[in-house]
Amino acid sequence: MENILIKTVDLTKTYIVGEVDVHALKSVNITIHKGEFVAIMGASGSGKSTLMNLLGCLDMPTSGDYFLDGINTSKLPQNEYANIRNQKIGFVFQGFNLLPRTTALENVELPLMYDRLEKIKDHQKQALEALKRVGLADRIHHIPSQLSGGQQQRVALARALVNEPSLILADEPTGNLDSVTSVEVFNLFQKLNEEGITIIMVTHERDFAAFAKRIIEMRDGRVIKDTIIKDRLDAEEELIRVKATAEISE
């Protein structure tokens, strides 16, 4: 089909720790279309991060194939792999992974430096745009230690956005954030999704998964449930509600 973005065929990842084989992923077959907003859920150790890392081309599967945009990534040379990370994917980590002692602006510029196609000429302008999109235009010269967790995660999101990827992967993006800040981040995700960017995120909380359009549930390295959400939560409205509750409780 034309608008399939992701297709995995028997995707398997086995870690070998000493004498023991850890089967983190066992023959995962999923298909995700362009424009989807998917939440991946499951117990701790069920293989969510492992799957995300493979989808993000940060790691190589033990066996199976991963088609991104119709290209079988498992057969690509290292440098092409790097190009895919740079061009097609924006990855948001739970732990932010920003360069320390480096300003927000420079952190966001980072992916542009490795853009071999040089499709973006003015790095600084592009990075500023991305920071504006996440609402951090007034913090561009702050270094990570001068930013709150939510702000750091928004810098990370700006970095993921800056190269205009078609896919954003977020592994527990709000795992370190309080609920108001989390909803703010999901609000951003929803907006980006409306602009046509495909989003896959991992979350532990069913409340947050409701912001997505589809939930994939995992257990022991397998997909056990795949549901489309009919009445999805609007983060904009939820934000107003959560903020009101927070004020009352104070």
Partner: peptide
């Protein structure tokens, strides 16, 4: 510290070279 930095750079698309 530098290995983490390298990880960050690789994850946003830097090649080993």
């Amino acid at each position: 510290e530098r290995t983490r930095e390298i990880g960050i750079r690789l994850s946003v698309g830097a090649r080993s070279s």
